[in-house]
Design a protein around this nucleic acid. Sequence first.
DNA 1: ATAACATGGATAGGCGATGTCCACAAATTA
DNA 2: TAATTTGTGGACATCGCCTATCCATGTTAT
Lengths: 162, 162
Amino acid sequence: MQYSIGVEYAFHSLFYMVDLPEHKTIGIKDMSKLHGISETYLSKIFSKLRKAGIVSSIPGVNGGYQLAKGAENISFWDIIEAIEGTSPLFSCIEIRKKNIFVNDPSIFTDKCPCLIKTVIQEAEELMRNKLKTKSLRWLREQVYRDFSLEKRNAIADWLRKV
Amino acid sequence: MQYSIGVEYAFHSLFYMVDLPEHKTIGIKDMSKLHGISETYLSKIFSKLRKAGIVSSIPGVNGGYQLAKGAENISFWDIIEAIEGTSPLFSCIEIRKKNIFVNDPSIFTDKCPCLIKTVIQEAEELMRNKLKTKSLRWLREQVYRDFSLEKRNAIADWLRKV
DNA sequence: ATAACATGGATAGGCGATGTCCACAAATTA
DNA sequence: TAATTTGTGGACATCGCCTATCCATGTTAT
């Protein structure tokens, strides 16, 4: 049970879009070449990011994608939720409602909702809240500290050309 | 991306084993009948619980399963990990190591391990730690508060008969 | 010996993740 | 206007995992 590879595609693609010059876009073709990954599949990922309001698109020649809002307003959780969806990690199908003790409705007095589900979802909320505190901007700043000048320049050059 | 139905099977099965009299076991057949679920599939779930040290088994006539340790020493996370495995929610395949900026090894100075992975796994640890604080014993006590006397007796009767 | 139980392997259907292909719409450029 | 480039959405294929079943085997009580 793991997050899909699409989450990794999304994070690494969005990372390079933080420093995209104003009014400029980047196309799926260039982004997929950058990472050496499938072009058509990456387009599906960006379709999800667009529907989630994380990026915006411009069709036509010289079109492409750009961040739909400031990188400081895009959290880790926003990105994960855009790709993985909003459903919680655990939501039971309520097998307890079918067990032999509930044949008599007068006996069925289980807490509603199921306490197991409640506890797991509360724990999951701790994770979500933590991921909401880290932004794409923060990631960019942290990672750039370790980038050599050569690498920063290489990225800047690449962004100018696409 | 959700926890499998096996997690729900495990929780609801283990719940009824907390009050199992000493030196007594419960078989897969009875447990599957209790919940109205697949007998053969539930046996696979219990196989995982046994390998995780949560239950122990006794083969042969009148054999079956019992808790391998006190319910206060079985945490929510123990149960989930037994069924879902130990791999973290997010572990990237390191696509960054294939991008066009790392053709020159002198430029590749990314933090290792990947900061994205680190942040997500730290957030996941918050969830794990929360789930480790809740035990099967705690669940039993909380749920029993809402059980009517009739239901408690019905469960006790059932446990005596199996 | 026989029946009741757990154990493990083989197998199958369903479903989502990954990935490809194609038709279409929109925008630029010639 | 025509051609090209780009995103959009649907259909499709493949693969692996989840769910589930079946069977062979080992173990124990009666």
